[in-house]
């Protein structure tokens, strides 16, 4: 796998959400992703960045354009140092939320992108990685 472009963005407040989404769009447009795929990726990113703000009061996102097996895609890594998730299986269920939200964030984001990975250690933080390929689905 080759990383072609890489950038990091700090997310500390709600006002960072829209500029962050625009940055994701730039990356998706750069590799020629279709409008539907762009929308799916940006929406998933929006959900995850909101989670990060809500539960960990922010964090950082690594944005990358990657290439693997002749496929090009956008990979986003959301890293926070929040309380972590004690039961990931439960957190990935539709409608489960410890906050007052709809509980669609994590499972919804997973459905929208091609690859989804979540690692979390209670007390240390959570890292979510999503990848959406140019010709994904």
């Amino acid at each position: 796998m080759i990383v072609m472009t890489k950038d990091t963005m700090q997310i500390v407040r709600e006002q960072d959400v829209v500029p962050f989404r625009n940055r994701v769009r730039e990356y998706a447009v750069k590799i020629g992703m279709s409008l539907v795929n762009q929308t799916k990726l940006i929406t998933a990113a929006s959900e995850l960045v909101r989670n990060m703000l809500k539960y960990a009061s922010g964090g950082k996102v690594i944005l990358e354009i990657i290439s693997k097996n002749a496929q090009t895609g956008v990979r986003l890594t959301f890293v926070d140092e929040g309380p972590g998730i004690s039961d990931i299986k439960q957190a990935m269920q539709d409608g489960f939320s410890t906050g007052r939200s709809l509980g669609l964030g994590l499972p919804g984001a997973k459905r929208l992108v091609n690859e989804f990975d979540i690692q979390s250690t209670p007390g240390t933080g959570t890292t979510v990685t999503i990848t959406h390929w140019k010709h994904g689905r």
Partner: peptide, 13 residues
Amino acid sequence: QPAVAITLVELGL
């Protein structure tokens, strides 16, 4: 927008 509708349904909303 159509892309938004497609995304919303997959999101579960």
